[in-house]
Every structure is written in structure tokens, then in C-alpha cells.
Design a protein around this nucleic acid. Structure first.
Lengths: 246, 246
DNA sequence: CATCCCGGTTGACGTGGATCAAGCTTGGAG
DNA sequence: CTCCAAGCTTGATCCACGTCAACCGGGATG
């Protein structure tokens, strides 16, 4: 909608998409900031971008200069080996940050691909660093976000290193469910944005194993699944699968 | 050596262990700081601690208030599942930081255990944050260190998710070799500080598989191994193992 | 000195998930 | 509408690694 459609100048600031009126601000970088601090952050994230399904937000080796907050949509990040093997390192949804991997070498070390039409906010990193030298809360929250990513990665290592196929997939579904819930969607019913192959790559399994395990969960009454549509019927049952060997 | 052994007052500052005279400063947090900045960091890391083999630096669930720089020694970090399964999430050596996992929730999310007698510098985290609000270089370097940890974790995911036993162990040995080299030790000959079981836990393998794979590498002339003593004979051979399926 | 115990090695065998292969379902293009 | 390609399911078979078990060697203990 063009600015002219508003008759009061003040409403311009409402139309302008910004952290201060973004409904993800409690999940995203602005968490905990005062109104005044929020407006300073607004200046920084003005650069917005739309991506279509399949578009790359950034690629391995690309120079790093910004991190990205997902405003809407769904992404995967992956690393490719020379021989073509792919490891999906994560799936990201609205309110989560992408690109933290690039800070280390000032080049991105993975690919970020939109799994559905998405919108992101680019946050120039050097400006984020200056602002967080002035705003303690922002600094601390950013550190927490990076640390949370490390903790998440440890969880994935646990999954890949010690769990069986059923446990991995159960953990995966419960994790998705919990993150959808945090965004106000149903905890029990959702569409998977990724293919069986991508799930398999993330979980260290082949797509056939993912498919078979879905079928087994359905036979056992834990879920109802039809292609990408999943309904969780028995959260407790899935949780139980995770804590018992065999 | 006691301070009295020095006859000039100025040498006291040399005897005092501090970042500014630590030979790890090019690997550790002080990287890139000016002398003046280095001295400000010195005030912060004065708290030092010795650990014996087997001692825990921190445990899962413990309140977080500091990160730790390893001055000497060798550590592992691990996560335990209720049913006793252990996932080693990393091995850390001199100059590396421990405890970054705790920033997120203000409680540690893994255990850090000394694998040999070690010495660490505790860095109160809130003081590190204030100092890095003042010293841009410190702030940026700290961000790089956290990002590097994320990138490292992605490498481990790749390893656990897509590689076969031989590739995992080859990658592990080459990584150790490279890190020892960076610390001025031989790249070709070193003692493993961890057991076969801990290596296995890190690599998502059972200790028997680790042992067998070591033996196979030895038969094939890639390494010479006797218990914890390893000599790498054929770096190129190990590298080749990593890039080919089968 | 003998004993114990922990960690490592090696062999025999079992199995979970990979591989190979054949349909099937769905959605987009013409 | 039909056709086609991409993605999903399911079955049969295989194999890398796990499991179980026996033994060994070295360092700590008494």
C-alpha cells in the first residue's frame, strides 16, 4: 500500500515495516529493548528482501557483511562436500537469525536456501556491533542468540551421535511442534516445508528410512502423516520413544 | 618462582601471569589488541585455577557467570542423556575458550572435564561484556570466536551425518594434528589425551570400531599407533580417505 | 613381588539402516 | 483435460558397524 493512502503523516511510521511494529520482536533480536532503543534498531534493519522458494539468501564462500532476521517464511542451511554429499545443518523459521556462521572468517561457510516464499531483514553486521556497544541489552541478547545456536548444535550432535532413527525423527517432530507453538501456530498440525531427503540429511538418515519411520509412527498411532501434512496425535508417545534405548 | 627472586620492581609484572605475557595470546581472546588494551584485559582474567585430571571445570545445570580460557592442558565437553548415553561435543586445548554454551540460559548446558592436569583463566562474563563495549577489537574478536564455534559444530554435524567410520577418524586425526601444529607441537606425532570410548562418543562410533579403524590405518601405513601414542605417516593418504565414498 | 583393573585389541556374529528397485501420488505445464 | 517430473512409499537384499566375548598389557596398589 502506497504512503498516499494514509491521510495522517504519523501513520507513515506505522506503515513502514520496522522492528518496532514487527510482531516477531519478542522472538527476534529486539527482545528486551526499550522503545527508544527499538527505534535506534529500526534505522539499522531498514534493508528488506523477498525471496521465492528455492532462492539462495547466501552461498558458501560469499563475503559476509550482514546477518539476516527471518520476517516470514522458512529456510534451510546446508554444507556441501566436494563429492556432492549434503549435510543440512538446520531449518530456520520466522524470528530466527541466519548468517552467524559468516562472522568467523568474514565469508559464509554454508548455503541458506528459502524453502518457501520468504521475507528477510538484512542487518549490517558492523552497524549491529556499533549499536550493541551502546545498547547493553542488545549486546547481551545477541550473545545469548549466538550461544543458543551453539547449544542447539550440541543437541544435533547428540541426535546424530547417539540416537536411533526413531528417536531422531521423534525429536525432530517435537522440536518443530514446539517452535510452531512459540509462533502461535498449532502444536499438533503443520505442513513440512522440506522434503524427506532434506529431513534425512539433517538427521543423518536416508530418505527411505525417514519415510519408513513416518509410516511406522503412523501405524503405532503417534502421528497422522500424508506427504507433507503432519498431525501429532500422541506427544507423550513420541517423547517416550526418545528416552528408551530400543 | 617467588617474586622475591627478582631484584627489580618492574619485573614483578613479568612474573605475574597475565594475558599480556601469555604465550597463547595470539590464539586466545587477546588476539589483535594493543598493549594498552591488553593490560585492561589483564585486570579481568586475574582469576586462575588449576585442575587435576578428571576434575570438572563446570557441570550441566551449574549457574553461568564466566567463560574460561585454557592456559594449559586438555578438556572434553559432553552432554549426558537420562539413560546414561554420553555425547562428547568437543575436545579443547590451550588457547581455546570453554563455557560459551552457558550464555544462552545463564546455566551451563554441558560438562567440561579436564583430561589431563590443566590450568584455566576464568573471565567473568559481565565484565567481558562491559570491556568489549569499550574495546571494539575485543568485541569483534569475541564474536569471531563464537562464530568459529558454530562453524566447527557444523563440521561435526557433517562428520556425524554423512561420513563413514574411516572418514570420521581420518578427519579427527587431521584436525588434532593441525591444532597441535598451531601450538608449536609436532604435526606428526602426539599423545591422545582421551580414551577410545571418548573418541567414539565424539565421532558417533563404538570404541571397538575406533580401535579397529586405528588398526586398519596402521596396516595401510597411514599411521603408527600404540595405545595413546600416534604418529601420522601419510597425511595425504588420510586426506584422500576423506573425499572418497568407500 | 603378585594382584587388580582399566583400557585396548581382536574375533565371531547380529542388525539397523543403506541400497537397489518398483510402483504410486501430486502438482504444474501444455 | 493429459502428461510428466519430482517426491513419496514400500519391498527385497546387503553391509558397515554394533554387540558380545575373550584376551592382553601396563600402571597402580598392597
Amino acid at each position: 500500500m502506497p504512503p498516499e493512502s494514509s491521510n495522517k503523516p504519523i501513520s507513515l511510521t506505522i506503515i513502514k515495516t520496522a522492528c518496532s511494529n514487527c510482531n516477531l520482536r519478542e522472538l527476534c533480536l529486539p527482545l528486551g529493548l526499550t522503545d527508544e532503543e527499538l527505534h535506534r534498531l529500526d534505522d539499522l534493519v531498514s534493508n528488506r528482501r523477498r525471496l521465492k522458494r528455492g532462492d539462495r539468501l547466501y552461498s558458501f564462500g560469499a563475503p559476509f557483511d550482514a546477518i539476516y532476521a527471518i520476517r516470514s517464511g522458512f529456510f534451510k542451511t546446508d554444507v556441501l562436500l566436494e563429492d556432492g554429499r549434503e549435510q543440512v545443518t538446520g531449518f530456520q523459521m520466522a524470528g530466527e537469525l541466519l548468517g552467524l556462521d559468516g562472522i568467523s572468517t568474514e565469508h559464509h561457510t554454508c548455503n541458506a536456501v528459502a524453502l518457501e516464499d520468504s521475507e528477510i531483514c538484512a542487518i549490517p553486521f558492523s552497524r549491529l556491533e556499533s549499536l550493541s556497544r551502546e545498547i547493553h541489552t542488545l549486546q547481551h541478547h545477541f550473545h545469548k542468540v549466538m550461544s543458543r545456536e551453539i547449544v542447539r548444535d550440541h543437541g544435533v550432535m547428540m541426535l546424530l551421535g547417539t540416537m536411533r532413527a526413531e528417536e531422531r525423527l521423534a525429536a525432530f517432530l517435537l522440536n518443530l511442534s514446539q517452535r510452531f507453538t512459540a509462533r502461535g501456530f498449532s502444536h499438533a498440525e503443520f505442513y513440512l516445508r522440506m522434503t524427506r531427503e532434506e529431513i534425512g540429511s539433517y538427521l543423518g538418515l536416508k530418505l527411505e528410512t525417514v519415510s519408513r519411520t513416518f509410516s511406522r509412527f503412523q501405524e503405532d498411532g503417534h502421528i497422522a502423516v500424508q506427504q507433507k501434512h503432519v498431525r501429532i496425535l500422541d506427544v507423550a508417545g513420541l517423547k517416550a520413544l526418545m528416552n528408551h534405548r530400543g
